[in-house]
Design a protein around this nucleic acid. Structure first.
Lengths: 81, 81
DNA sequence: TGAATATATACGCTAATACGTATATTTCAA
DNA sequence: TTGAAATATACGTATTAGCGTATATATTCA
C-alpha cells in the first residue's frame, strides 16, 4: 500500500495517519524526531512553510519511504529518468 | 523508473536531475514555480530548511509524483496502511 | 462524568527562508 | 578563447519556523 502526496496538507495527513497506525502520540513522534510536539502538530496541520528537514525526519522516524517518479499522466515525457 | 528520496540533499539532487532532463534552466523552473531562481538554487543544493511548499511546487512543475510507502525493511509493520 | 492523556496555541527569542534586486562565478558552446 | 547563458551569492527587509516553556482545549476511557 502507498499514498500519493502532492502538498504539505497531504503530507501532514499522511504523517498523522502513519503515526496513529503506530500508536504514537505527537509527543512520542516528536521525541524520536528531536523536535517539539508543537512542531509535529504544525507538520500534521499541513503548514506550508514547514522545513523539509522536519518532513524527512518524520518519514524516517515512521519508517516510511519516499519515492519520486514521473506522473502517470505525463505521457509526453517517458524517459524522465 | 523512480528515485528514493530520504533527505533534502537527495531531494535537491532529484529536482536538479529532473529539471535538466526537461532542459530547463533554474530560471525557467523558478518561473513556473513562482519563486526566484535563487530559491531553486538553494532547493537543489539541499538546503534542509527549504520550505516543503517549495519542494512540492517543484515536483508539480516538473510533473513528478511523490509516493510514500512503508520501508521494505520494516517487516515488523506490514499493515501500516 | 471526571480525570488523565493528547493536541492546539501562546509568548519571547533566535535564526534563516524567500523576497526584490543585483552581481560574482562558473559552465559551455561558437 | 571568449562571450553569453546559467548558477551561486550578496544585501536589506519582512515573515515565520522552531526553540524553551507553558497552558488552553480537546479527546479518550475507566
Amino acid at each position: 500500500m502507498s499514498d500519493l502526496v502532492r502538498s504539505p496538507r497531504m503530507a501532514g495527513d499522511l504523517v498523522r495517519k502513519a503515526r496513529k497506525t503506530r500508536g504514537w502520540s505527537q509527543t512520542e513522534l516528536a521525541s524520536r524526531m528531536n523536535v517539539r510536539q508543537a512542531t509535529v502538530s504544525k507538520l500534521e496541520a499541513g503548514e506550508p512553510a514547514t522545513r523539509m528537514e522536519v518532513f524527512f525526519d518524520a518519514l524516517t522516524a515512521l519508517k516510511l519511504e519516499l519515492v519520486v517518479s514521473k506522473r502517470g499522466s505525463d505521457a509526453d515525457f517517458a524517459d524522465l529518468f
